[in-house]
Structure formats: C-alpha cells, structure tokens
Amino acid sequence: MSIDNSTVKKVASLARIEIKSDEEDTLIKELNNIILWVDELQKVNTDKVDPMLSVFNESMPMRQDIAKSNYSNKLIMKNSPKSNSGFFVVPKVVE
C-alpha cells in the first residue's frame, strides 16, 4: 500500500489541511515512509486478539441530570475571531 498524489489530496481534504504544492512531494515521501514502517505490524499475528480500546477498565461514571449555566455568552465568545450579536460568524454556508 502506498500513498500517491491523489490519496494525499483526498486525505488532506478530509483533514481540512491545505497542502502547498511545494510541500506535496516531501510530504508524500514522508507519509509513505511512515506507512511502510508501520506496515511492519501486519506481520504480527493478531488472530483471536480483541482490540484494546483503552487501558482504563473502570466503569463509566454518570452525571445526574442537573443543569448548570457555568459559562456566560460573554465567556464563550471571548476568544472568537469573528462574532455578531452573540453568534459566531463564518462565511456563508450553502446547504
């Protein structure tokens, strides 16, 4: 398995990362090396092995259904690059 030009474009688009054309070749090479390297895992026999989702083996803690207004609109919007009347503002999204 190797990552080609179009795969990089697809993955970059999924990850929403702009890749400049002058970065592309190096990146493809690097990604391929990494993928080739992690491909070593294919040699490990994992038949009958359950995937380990987490090392944490205590039960899921649950919260009571109590509503708390911990943060005001002012705090929530405090770091926003662009806002208007208490809303976050982004370029028009077409549905």
């Binding site: 990850a15 929403r16 990362i17 702009e18 690097e30 990604l31 992690v38």
Partner: peptide, 19 residues
C-alpha cells in the same frame, strides 16, 4: 489549519486521518 499547524502536526494529522 494549513497555516495554524506546524509541519509535524500536519504530518501526524494526515497519518491519523489516513489510518
């Protein structure tokens, strides 16, 4: 994200997205 993240972060995000 292209400008906000550095090279190593972008590399790992690409790998992570790919796998």
């Amino acid at each position: 994200r292209g400008k906000g993240f550095g090279k190593e972060v972008k590399r790992r995000l690409m790998i992570g997205t790919y796998v």
